[in-house]
Design a protein around this nucleic acid. Structure first.
Lengths: 235, 235
DNA sequence: CCTGGCCGTTAAGGACGCGTCAAGATTGGG
DNA sequence: CCCAATCTTGACGCGTCCTTAACGGCCAGG
């Protein structure tokens, strides 16, 4: 969950911020002074900080610098002072945004979303893992236990369509339509050739695939976990 | 030089912005309408955009979306409207900051510095080291085991886009859009020429690159560690 | 035991993309 | 005005990928 540290000395506003943010599913630690803020941030590093400049114990820019010393989390400053020099000082000290009181909650939330959007572009690229190989569709990376493997554009495309409907049967017609276009609906030859190629590159034993499964007469299926028991050898 | 695109229909303010920014050593193309803005941005991709929402020809959020389709450059919105919904709409459309007119030039410059500070990759990527060369994007320094190397502005830009998504495949289209602008989407010639130049300057064996990898038909990839095994010397 | 359909495998040919080089155009500075 | 550096543009050889065809194995039904 995204953690938003709220630093505000006035109890009413602190409460209002915390309630509104928690309603949006943020985790919201709060602090009433600069010292508390630095302690709280050290204890549980926030993803973004909402900071009132008018704290009782220390100057706001000092708090900013104290945070900037070790974290790059965006800092959104709240302040009753609308003078230009105040804004310039805070922004140049390392703040990312400056909102003058009184402000609307909707605006603050929008600015918070904008700050978070910038700060967290890369976190999780969806990974597809099986016992023998790993696929990262976004990065276009594939590797088996034997090392990295190179796939061609068509192989990626085919694999992507199958993984999108992971576990489910994908009819031949749909695979052909999505990868080669609507005029190739009947060219099941392509499927056999490219499925063989994928299995040769990804499966431990291409002749007995565990994850790229043929459903005779219907289509193919991607199975992340493989068959429940051992592969049938004799019946 | 840092390029700031100013989009403002009122001539007096447009001039004032341009003069002030140029005095700070920014390169400042200007546009008076939304259409002009998109054209100018396509011609010379800006590092940051200052955008007036009240343009005569098209809605401000449309301009934002038009830019966001292909560039991640920060967008600072200027507007005479102080309503919350206007701010929320602009910010959620992809703007990075929202300044209400009238505003002070010092404040705008500070917000511009804050936006550029975030966008400049010195926070996330101080140093990129491989077995044969080292890249410092912030300091614009490159050196190989044979000594320092001089890269041209275009080479730096291309390298920067690849390093920002280190390890991941970067599609040709995105490289072309971010470095040359959206009108060059299909000029894959440029990629070949400049990738060759980078490899000639950085790779130990430009004919067999270990870090600037081609993914045929898809794009390129920057790989800090290189392939798993040692390069074959006999083949 | 025979037969036909579906699937897996392999290889050859051609289309296309990529790396490379070099010359013209453009820009900035002296 | 000239010079140097950079960017743009075009041409050519080569390698990769896609397409296509042929062949053999497996299984169901007669």
């Amino acid at each position: 969950m995204t953690r938003v540290l709220v630093v505000e000395d006035e109890p009413a506003l602190r409460q209002a911020l915390a309630i509104n943010l928690r309603a949006r599913r943020y985790e919201v630690p709060v602090a009433a002074t600069g010292a508390e803020a630095l302690t709280a941030a050290a204890q549980a590093p926030p993803d973004v900080v909402v900071l009132d400049l008018g704290l009782p114990d220390m100057d706001g820019t000092e708090v900013i610098r104290g945070l900037r010393g070790w974290t790059q989390a965006p800092i959104i400053v709240l302040s009753a002072r609308s003078g230009q020099s105040d804004k310039v000082d805070a922004l140049d000290a390392g703040a990312d945004d400056y909102v003058t009181k009184p402000f609307g909650m909707d605006e603050l939330l929008a600015r918070l979303r904008a700050a978070l959007r910038r700060a967290t572009p890369d976190e999780a690229t969806p990974l597809v893992e099986t016992a023998h190989f790993t696929i990262d569709l976004a990065a276009k990376l594939a590797k088996t236990t034997n090392g990295p493997v190179r796939l061609t554009p068509t192989e990626w495309h085919l694999l992507e369509v199958m993984i999108r409907d992971e576990g489910k049967l994908v009819p031949q017609r749909r695979l052909l339509q999505e990868v080669w276009g609507p005029t190739y609906e009947t060219e099941t030859n392509y499927l056999r050739v490219y499925m063989a190629s994928l299995r040769r590159k990804l499966e431990a034993d291409p002749a007995h695939p565990l994850h790229l499964i043929t459903e005779p007469g219907m289509g193919y299926r991607f199975d992340r976990h493989g068959p429940d028991g051992e592969p049938r050898t004799g019946g």
